[in-house]
Amino acid sequence: MQNSSPIGIFDSGYGGLTVFRSIADQLPDYNYIYLGDNARSPYGDHSFETIYKYTLECVEWLFEQGCRLVILACNTASAKALRSIQQKDLPVKYPDRRVLGVIRPTAEVIGDFTLSKQVGVMGTRGTINSESYLIEINKFSPDIKVHQQSCPMWVPLIENNEHLQPGADFFINEYCNSLMEQCADIDCVLLACTHYPLLLPRLKTVFPDYINILTQGEIVANSLVDYLRRHPEMEEKLGKQGKKLFYTSGDTATFDSHASIFFGEELVSKQM
């Protein structure tokens, strides 16, 4: 009998839909449940304890919906909650479930995109303050120097659909210039927030042409394909009817009106 366990994809809001889009493009036959915790978003300025609590609650909700594998498509949750969930909660309460994040897959491959070994990381305050990228990139590429820049205004601009308006230029230029002032030799910039791919058209006009601007969707999707290849015991439990369900902890009408910008197609969500 074919199993029907969906892959759970979690984000504090809308940004994880950019990762979901890439995953669904590469693995279109699988079943998915997306959960956005919009009622408590953004996560970026919350404490470690609060982010861990919120993330665990949402992961457990996805487990209750039948998900055996959950992707934290949120840099802040990956930085501040993933390790605790993997080490404290899964072994005791959910030994047959797995939770993966977006930081490690990115850290594994970022060395392929820089010649100068000077890399910029742009993210929320929570992600930047956690120093998770410094730690993870150093594990795989200790010769790389990481320069960080928090961008607290970018998520509000994007979620209010103001990111491509002239009024957003000040904050886009300010954060990009602040990053490059740290090191003129940066030749690779990682957008370490799943909202930020929507800024790509503007960022390509601000950064010099020689800089590689990395988004995480394709990287995380490639990593998931590899994970399922290496873990057939998990892969065989996953449903493959091509179903996609969307849930939000916030208002569904608001979610639906914003989500299409991130996912690239119209969708209809349900209340979690």
Rank of each mutant, 00 (worst) to 15 (best):
R230C: 06
H46T: 09
E136A: 10
L200T: 15
K88Q: 15
N129W: 04
T127E: 14
S5I: 00
D185I: 03
N75S: 04
G120C: 05
D96T: 03
W154R: 08
I186H: 13
E136T: 04
E236H: 12
S178D: 08
D256A: 01
Q241G: 14
N212T: 15
G15M: 00
D251C: 14
Q2F: 15
L69W: 04
M234T: 09
F10S: 09
Y94D: 08
G8K: 01
R229N: 15
Q148I: 12
I9V: 15
A77V: 02
E235I: 11
N222G: 09
L35K: 00
V206Q: 05
I211C: 14
A77N: 07
V146K: 01
P232H: 13
S4I: 11
N3V: 08
S257N: 09
A168T: 06
K240F: 02
L238C: 01
P95Y: 00
L267I: 15
G16D: 04
L245K: 12
S132E: 00
A77D: 02
N173P: 00
C74W: 08
L190V: 10
H147M: 14
C151G: 08
T124N: 05
S47W: 06
Q86V: 04
G66F: 13
V102S: 03
L198P: 10
F207L: 11
V92T: 06
M180V: 06
C176E: 03
F262C: 08
S116D: 01
F255L: 11
W154N: 05
L157R: 09
N160G: 12
V121K: 01
E131H: 08
R68T: 10
Y14F: 14
E265I: 06
Y196T: 11
A253M: 10
H46I: 07
L199S: 06
G167I: 10
E236A: 11
L100D: 00
N173Q: 06
V102R: 00
N3E: 13
Y34F: 09
